[in-house]
């Protein structure tokens, strides 16, 4: 990628730049290029559809990692009002790789949490590239428990490569914290809506990803392992990550089919970063629709449905007792 442009979208981006140049020229010099512009725009539309309507799983992974993709705080700013950011896990420190607080969503007070990537190198260092330590997950849990106390619904916006793999993170119980978050989140007596907005990296995503509804942006990915690590395990070659992305079935459509997510939020053609306002509008609409449905349920019903949903996840096959008996007595092929 060069300057936020992928090799496979370069012809389109070059065309778009040319159109912008001509438009600027028209304004500055007063020369009429409208016909040329119209032709180029038709060409750009064709190219856009061609490139973006048949994205491979790996291209979507790349879009999910786009440096200009809206981050958690960007979305909060675009969909909420009155956001009051809260800090700290009341135990170790304030992990800036995880953000959260209270806000209004269309007038409804909600608690919102999510990992936060940096928008430039400096911020990325402060935020540890959006890779939370245990205290980040504890902060998120603290805010969710507070939400439960006040009967506030929860919105979890998920964009995380994974829980940070470091010495201190392990010392302070990264595994234990993830397990505790999953356990506690599963039994919260308020509506929980999770949205995978970018990357959904394994346990680090699930630790803030158990909800009544799990939505996913069209170009987001969510997987038990990153394509790079999968490629390394399978073929000892991280360069084959594009292939692994296909094998892992980590895209929104796959996850909907597998019953892991409930809805796909469509992105503007070419990815969320190409039209932030539009993608925020769609996000807000979907979240509100689900939250309103869930807020109508009483907490027992809510919990019962949530647990049943997860209880049914997985695919398996059962041999009957009779069949096994037959195999054992040699009357059937195993």
């Amino acid at each position: 990628m060069v300057n936020g442009v992928f090799e496979w979208e370069r012809p389109l981006v070059e065309l778009e730049n040319r159109i912008r140049e001509l438009q600027a020229f028209t304004k500055e010099k007063g020369i009429d290029f409208s016909q040329e512009i119209a032709t180029l725009e038709r060409k750009a539309d064709r190219l856009r559809a061609e490139i973006f309507s048949n994205l491979t799983p790996w291209q979507r992974v790349q879009l999910a990692r786009h440096p200009r993709r809206p981050t958690t705080l960007d979305y909060i700013g675009m969909i909420c009002t009155d956001f009051l950011e809260l800090s700290g896990d009341r135990c170790v420190r304030n992990d800036e790789a995880m953000v959260g607080g209270v806000a209004l969503l269309d007038g409804i007070p909600i608690t919102v949490v999510g990992p936060q990537k940096g928008r430039d190198t400096k911020e990325n260092i402060r935020r540890n590239f959006g890779l939370p330590h245990p205290e980040g997950y504890r902060k998120a849990l603290r805010l969710m428990v507070q939400a439960e106390k006040f009967g506030r619904p929860i919105l979890s916006l998920i964009d995380v490569v994974g829980a940070y793999p470091g010495i201190e993170a392990e010392q302070r119980g990264q595994g234990v914290v993830i397990a505790e978050n999953i356990r506690r989140m599963s039994f919260l007596r308020v509506p929980v809506v999770c949205v995978i907005t970018g990357e959904g990296g394994s346990g680090g995503a699930l630790a803030i990803g158990v909800g009544d509804r799990v939505l996913m942006m069209e170009n987001a990915w969510y997987s038990v392992i990153s394509p790079e690590m999968c490629a390394e395990i399978l073929w000892k070659d991280t360069g084959r990550a594009p292939e692994a992305a296909g094998v892992l079935k980590l895209g929104a459509r796959d996850l909907l089919e597998l019953g892991v997510i409930d809805e796909i939020i469509p992105e503007p053609l070419g990815g969320a970063h190409r039209d932030r306002e539009e993608v925020a509008r769609r996000l807000k609409e979907a979240v509100l629709r689900h939250l309103r449905e869930l807020m109508a349920l009483d907490p027992d019903e809510l919990l019962d449905r949530r647990l049943k949903k997860y209880r049914a996840m997985g695919r398996l096959q059962e041999q009957t007792a009779e069949r096994l008996e037959a195999i054992r007595s040699g009357q059937a092929e195993a």
Partner: peptide, 19 residues
Amino acid sequence: GARMQEGILSLMQMAKTCQ
């Protein structure tokens, strides 16, 4: 840990077992 070959469904077993 979670079994890679079953992808996201393995991850969901973490939720199922914690519950």
